[in-house]
Every structure is written in structure tokens, then in C-alpha cells.
Computed example of a mutant assay.
Amino acid sequence: MGQDNTSHSGGPGYDELVPSRYALRVGEIDVMVVSDGIISISAEAMATNADPAVRSAWLHERLQPEVMDWALNEVVVRSGDRTILIDSGLGLEAPSFPKTGRWSSRLEAAGIDLADVTDVVLTHMHFDHVGGLLVDGVQDQLRPDVRIHASAAEAEFWQAPDFSRTAMPGAMTDMIRSAAKRFLAQYGSKLQTFETDAEVAPGVVVTRTGGHTPGHSVVRLASGGDRLTFVGDAVLPHSFEHQEWHNGFEHDPEEAVRVRTRLLRDLAASGEPLLGTHLPFPSICRVAAVGNGYRWVPALWNY
């Protein structure tokens, strides 16, 4: 539509024409999905092992071009006395992506004070998940005792990353390597690593899955009878119908297939909703089994 994404009504505060945050509750846990905008990805990078004709047909059915826009979503969780950021968006690490990098300003607009954050959980250390923490001034706003949770396998991998099984352009690997190196230099002393899983706060558990990166993790929320899983990059827009497609950013494509197939199977069986980093904002959906595959069923917004 080409409209500016800001209202000019003159109302107070950060007044957006298009919402960039969505709040919900999981039992007694408060959850807010925050949009960091969108990133563009080529169809080839989206599914490197797909038959080009099948891939083009999938895009055509969804009225999508060969370079498509993906959402970039992060999550804020409040459980007990803990305020938890799950991932931090792209920040300003890649200014060539002009439609993103709004994470910190949108947190502020949502009333989230970085000084109140007790914990940060990283699903993995790709640049669009740690970039917000690298924006000038963000580290100074965080409390000195903030805890940053990531799997031990993830922290170890980025000490000397191996891109031999990915299919990214060379410039992209340099960008990703640089962001992870900067992140570890700035925040390495605050890392609290785990092997398999860790309870970050009451009802908030981060679990390593591997696949997308060696230490990629998901975050499961549980309170009362309610459940929700933030799947990070384990499930992508095409994953419901084509779990077998390899994404160019996956460091172990075969394991990534096994991880998302298992997640989709379990979520379809339980009926539990999920959130995904790159699913259309606010990305809350359920998984329905259809034949040998799955279908993404968007949740209704609650007002």
C-alpha cells in the first residue's frame, strides 16, 4: 500500500498506524510479541534443496515473489518477578535491511524498560537474534546482574564457527561471524549456559534442539493448563508443508529437518500454540496435521 507506518493523528506517545506488538497471557505468564520489522530472503536461500519448479509453485500459490519478506519477531515474557527478553532482533548490524532494526525503540514504545530486564534468552546467535543487544547504548541500559541464557553448544560453536554446510552468500557469513564475535566479546561474561535445558523463571524453560545451529533452542511456557512454545528458527513459513526443505542458514540441514518434523508432530498432537521468529506477525498459530504434512492455523487476535 506504500503508506507510512506512523500515524499522524497527533496522539500521545509512539502512535503507530500498524501495530508492532501483541500481548497475550499464558496462565499467569504475560507474553508480548514485538516486531522488529521484516527481512527479505531469496527463494533459493529459503529452500536450497527444493526442486525449483516445486518451490516456484509454492511461492506462486501464495502470491509471493522470488524474493520474499519474512517477519522478524521477538518476545518479552514476565513470570513472577522476572522480565525476560527472548532474542533481540537485528538491531543495526545490517543497515542494508531497511525494514527492520526497530527492536529497542519498539520495546520503549511498549513500555519495556531495559533496566527492568532480569534475563535474556537467546534461541541462537545469528545476527538477527543478537543484533539488538549490539546497538549503541543498549548494554549500558541493562542491569549489571542481567543473566543471558544460551546453550553451551551454541556458545562453543561461535568461538570458531563452521559454515561448511550452510548455503549463505560469503558476505552474509562475514556479517553473521562478526555479530557473534562482537556479542561474545561484550556479553560473554554474563552468559549462563546449559547443556540440555534450563528453567529461567517459573514456567519458562529453554531447551536445546540443535539443527538450525548446533545450540539452537526453543522456549516453552507453561502456567496452569496453558502452554505456548517459541520455536525460534526451527519452524519457518514453508516448514508446515515442506519440512524436508533445507534453509540456507542451517548449519546442520538434516538435523534441522528432524527437529522441525518432531516439533510439528508434537505440537499437532497436543494442540499447543506456537510462536515463530519468522512467521507472519504476531505469528501465534496452531499446527494441524494434513495427510503426510501439516497446516499453519493462525490464532484469532483477542481484543
Rank of each mutant, 00 (worst) to 15 (best):
M1C: 13
Q3V: 14
D4N: 11
T6S: 12
G13F: 07
Y14A: 15
V18C: 06
P19M: 07
Y22L: 05
A23W: 04
A23V: 10
A23C: 11
V31E: 08
V31W: 07
M32C: 12
S35I: 02
S35W: 05
G37F: 00
I38Q: 13
I39R: 12
S40E: 14
S42D: 13
E44T: 10
P52A: 11
A57S: 14
A57P: 02
H60S: 15
E61Y: 07
D69K: 14
A71W: 00
R82Q: 13
D87M: 01
S88N: 14
G89R: 06
L90N: 05
G91P: 05
G101A: 07
R102G: 10
S104Y: 03
L107Q: 04
A115L: 09
D119Q: 06
V121I: 15
V121F: 05
L122V: 06
H124E: 14
M125L: 15
F127N: 12
V130E: 07
G131R: 02
L133V: 05
V138M: 06
Q141N: 04
D145A: 11
D145F: 04
A150P: 00
W158Q: 03
A160Q: 13
A167W: 01
D174C: 02
M175V: 10
R177W: 06
A180E: 03
A180T: 02
R182I: 00
R182H: 09
Q186L: 14
K190N: 08
L191P: 02
T193R: 08
F194I: 01
E195S: 14
T196C: 01
E199A: 12
T209Q: 12
G210Q: 03
G210E: 04
G210D: 05
G211T: 03
T213K: 05
T213Y: 03
P214E: 05
V218D: 01
V219A: 06
G232C: 08
V235I: 15
P237Y: 00
F240V: 03
E244P: 00
W245F: 04
H246V: 01
A256M: 07
T261M: 09
T261I: 00
T261F: 04
R262Q: 12
R262F: 03
G276N: 05
G276S: 13
G276V: 05
I284T: 13
A288F: 03
A289E: 15
G291M: 09
G291Q: 09
G293R: 13
A299E: 15
N302C: 04
